[in-house]
């Protein structure tokens, strides 16, 4: 599934390393950037709207593996959509974010899912449906059950979060990692079946050399 990264000098250690590409999808202003910021910096601040895409990395040292997340945060604006499909290509996981206080963003999330289903086979990508802004409980327009039911029928992970009050943000990413690693184990005996080109950390060294010329 993911690119397995082995250290160039030492032989295979007991703990494997994986690199996963994670994309944040959803309507404008649902809190994608805030979730990424909360997760990477453990902070919340008033960010101005994302332009294009932002890229973050986060390394997790887990008991069973070292995981490097490459997180792509997209602007979610229509004018960038033609460009943004490039960003979710080759993704290992997607956070499908909506705002629990805005029903329309929930419908949009469903559309994003359709888009993803066109591009990926179910076992190719881990998708988490994320209802953000739980701190706005008073303005809630999408019930937890609605989100849950939809996620269940589509086989998605589901969680409600608040980037603002730091509610379950880490948990979403942890749930994704666990699912990715579980799938990794399932597939372990077989060589990676997919023909998609993923970014190999070793290969990026080679790329560096080739453009120094």
């Amino acid at each position: 599934m993911a690119q397995m990264v082995t250290s160039g000098t030492s032989p295979e250690g007991p703990r494997p390393s994986y690199m996963y590409k994670v994309v944040l999808l959803g309507s404008m202003s649902v809190g994608k950037s805030s979730l990424a910021y909360r997760y990477v910096k453990n902070d919340f601040r008033e960010l101005l709207p994302t332009v294009g895409c932002s890229f973050f990395t986060q390394v997790l040292e887990l008991d069973e593996a070292t995981v490097k997340f490459e997180i792509w945060d997209t602007a979610g604006q229509e004018k960038y959509q033609s460009v943004c499909h490039l960003y979710y290509r080759d993704a290992h996981a997607a956070l499908l974010v909506y705002d629990i206080a805005n029903k329309q963003t929930f419908s949009r999330a469903k559309l994003w899912l359709e888009e993803l289903e066109k591009k990926f086979l179910p076992d190719e990508i881990v998708i988490a449906l994320v209802g953000n802004k739980t701190d706005l409980a008073a303005e809630r327009e999408v019930t937890t059950e609605e989100g849950e039911d939809f996620a269940r029928t589509k086989g998605l992970l589901f969680m409600e979060t608040s980037a603002k009050s730091n509610h379950q943000v880490n948990d979403v990413f942890m749930a994704i990692v666990q699912e990715l690693l579980r799938r990794e184990k399932e597939k372990a005996p077989r060589p990676s079946p997919h023909g998609r080109s993923t970014v190999d950390l070793r290969a990026s060294g080679a790329r560096t050399r080739c453009c120094r010329s």
Binding site: L47, L48, T50, V51, G52, C53, S54, F55, A75, Y80
Partner: peptide, 16 residues
């Protein structure tokens, strides 16, 4: 463009 969005402060942006 750069002065209009604080989002560039974090991570790396890639935009058309």
């Amino acid at each position: 463009l750069i002065s209009s969005s604080s989002s560039f402060r974090e991570g790396e942006a890639w935009t058309p």
